[in-house]
Amino acid sequence: MKCIVGLGNPGRKYKDTRHNVGFMVIDELLQRHQWELNKKKFSGKYAMEHISMEKVILLKPQTFMNLSGESIRPLMDYYNIAVEDVLVIYDDLDLPTGKIRLRQKGGHGGHNGIRSTIDHLGTKEFKRMRIGVGRPTTPIPVVDYVLASFSKEQQEDVIMSIKQSADACEYWLQNSFLEVMNEYNN
């Protein structure tokens, strides 16, 4: 069984913000397969389904970003999901809007959702997909920037990156993560 986790903040207030691109990828996968997040447990909402003969859980932690690991770890423990079968999707300021990057492991890079995940999993060695949201071009605090919606100029790139990220998730269910990285890290 594999687990795809989209990081974000719950609630309408945060729905279309830069910090919620992880949630947006989960929403894209749900829409493609006509599924719903029909389970509530482990401080999260999730769906357990099959894609391409692979059992998969799609998880949206409901803990708010900075406590994401508090949702991921209990779900992994309950379903006996190995850390190598987890993919965490999140926003990245250091990538231009619309770019995606996949990695097999790494640090938190200042991202509090990933920091919490590392703390709760007890390892930095889990798969991740970073989706670029760019850096602010005006003097605005980073917190305000990531909690704001994408600009009109960014919309097309964001939509493309969400679709590409969902494609990469589906590809991972049939291929090794190294193959996914080779295909989508270009």
Rank of each mutant, 00 (worst) to 15 (best):
S151W: 08
K45S: 15
N112G: 06
F42E: 00
L37Q: 03
I72H: 00
D144H: 12
R101K: 15
R18H: 05
C169F: 03
S161V: 14
E49D: 12
A47T: 13
K13E: 14
Y14K: 05
D27V: 06
T123D: 03
G122H: 10
K152V: 11
R128G: 06
F150S: 07
K41E: 12
G107I: 06
G134C: 08
R130T: 06
Y78R: 01
D167G: 02
I114T: 05
I100N: 03
Q34C: 13
R32C: 02
F23H: 09
E179S: 14
N38Q: 07
Q164V: 14
E70Y: 11
L178R: 11
S149P: 13
Y171Q: 02
V180R: 04
L95G: 07
S161G: 07
R135S: 12
F126E: 02
S161N: 05
K39E: 12
V146T: 10
M76P: 02
M24E: 09
G113D: 05
A148R: 10
D144M: 05
D119Q: 15
Q164C: 12
V25A: 01
D119C: 06
D92C: 06
M181N: 10
S165E: 08
G109E: 03
I4H: 00
Y90I: 09
G98K: 09
G8H: 08
K152T: 13
E70Q: 15
P139Y: 12
K124R: 15
R101L: 11
R128Q: 08
F126C: 04
E170T: 08
Y171F: 15
D77V: 07
I81S: 00
L93F: 05
V86F: 00
S71N: 04
L95S: 07
V21Q: 04
Y184V: 07
F42I: 00
V83E: 05
K2Q: 11
T117V: 13
I100S: 01
Q34N: 15
I162L: 14
Y14E: 06
A47D: 09
A82F: 10
L173F: 01
M1S: 00
S43A: 12
M1R: 00
M181R: 05
E125Q: 13
N20L: 07
L121H: 07
E179F: 03
I114K: 04
Q164I: 14
L93E: 08
N175P: 04
R128E: 03
I51S: 00
Y90Q: 09
N185H: 09
V88M: 01
E70G: 08
S116C: 03
H50F: 15
K105P: 01
D94R: 08
T17A: 08
R103I: 01
M76I: 01
L178T: 14
L58G: 02
D92M: 10
E36N: 12
Y171V: 01
P136E: 08
M181W: 07
H50V: 14
A148K: 12
M65Y: 11
I162G: 04
D144K: 13
